[in-house]
Write a protein that binds this DNA or RNA. Sequence first.
DNA 1: ATAATAAATGACACCGTGTCATTTGTCAAT
DNA 2: ATTGACAAATGACACGGTGTCATTTATTAT
Lengths: 203, 203
Amino acid sequence: MPKATFFNLPEKKRQSLIKAMEIEFSRVPLYEASIANIVKTAGISRGSFYQYFRDKEDAYYYILKEQASRRNKQFIQQLHTHQGDLFEAITAFYYDLLIELPDEKEYNFFRNALLNVTHQIETIFNEIIESNLKKDGMEEITKLINRDLLNIESDSELTHVIHIISAVAFRNFVEKFTKELSDQEAIESFIAEMNLLKKGIAK
Amino acid sequence: MPKATFFNLPEKKRQSLIKAMEIEFSRVPLYEASIANIVKTAGISRGSFYQYFRDKEDAYYYILKEQASRRNKQFIQQLHTHQGDLFEAITAFYYDLLIELPDEKEYNFFRNALLNVTHQIETIFNEIIESNLKKDGMEEITKLINRDLLNIESDSELTHVIHIISAVAFRNFVEKFTKELSDQEAIESFIAEMNLLKKGIAK
DNA sequence: ATAATAAATGACACCGTGTCATTTGTCAAT
DNA sequence: ATTGACAAATGACACGGTGTCATTTATTAT
């Protein structure tokens, strides 16, 4: 979490700092990102940066969580739109994500995150779907899901289902970037795997 | 890949260097590992290290691949033992992995890898199951799998099945470490998810 | 106007990586 | 045995990065 000082900043300055961070974190992955670049772009001193953030990671995860939170809202929206059909919702969400990403800066930001996924990054991505970003997130999601469509018998199974789906969705998303798949290929692969999950793998 | 110089090293020296790297990479994750520590432990000069490896990552992935290759052999062994039953084999493999890991150094090595999974690390882990470590790896695996037990209609579906299973297995393995689950909990969660994969998630 | 508190600053200490000119070792050919 | 050519070893060093801190500057309250 950024320090209080960061939130006390005048809106304009805070936005310009956020922008500078987004630029740097889009350029290279976390471990190569340099604070020197950020403060130069934002036009502040090095010391100031450390008034706002504990360290580089603090800043990075702040930006990443902002992104994730926006995406999480989209996913919940899709769940509403598709009347709690988990598969429909995640497919629509995945589709949106790919089609909507042509903004180069955002694209590279994700790319850098995904090529260098730490556990923490993966956790945040999974929270887009699992909705743990805010308190009571998981409940919000499980309430929305229409269980009649699922082959499950308990709450615990529902949790596992969500885990499985977010694991597979995430992995597909990573592969889109690492194997440089076209949108078309990525979506086909995603749908194929979702269908396998639906129908079951064993005879 | 390490440079030729590394493989020209007398066995004893090479082993002691490998051991020094294992110690350091067990202590902390890749990005915190220090070459100064490695060369001190191994009793060689800093310059020598760079005669053997292009850089720190080169060294790290060499060690990681060695580990993965050993695990891959175990998985293939399990496929044999269970007559090509993919689910039986992966469950036995997972079980072995957890039960067998109490060697503290190896445990920490995995832990550091899994808490800081880059795409490359995940790829190598998945190759344990997908057997791409050596050429023709994928074929070796697909031949071994008994397709009669699976609800699939094509080679392409089999590939997706393997992807899905390795994604879910990997994710379970990561959670074992990050959520500090007991062996018991980890295995229960793993089996629950494998069962869901088997029977299918949709009604 | 003054005191008190908050924010901004940049020089600096520290540590790490990868390089390179130089030294040392090895081994085949004469 | 000597030479020369190639391979390996070395550690000082250049460079660049992070996070700190004493000091200055701004803001707010009294």
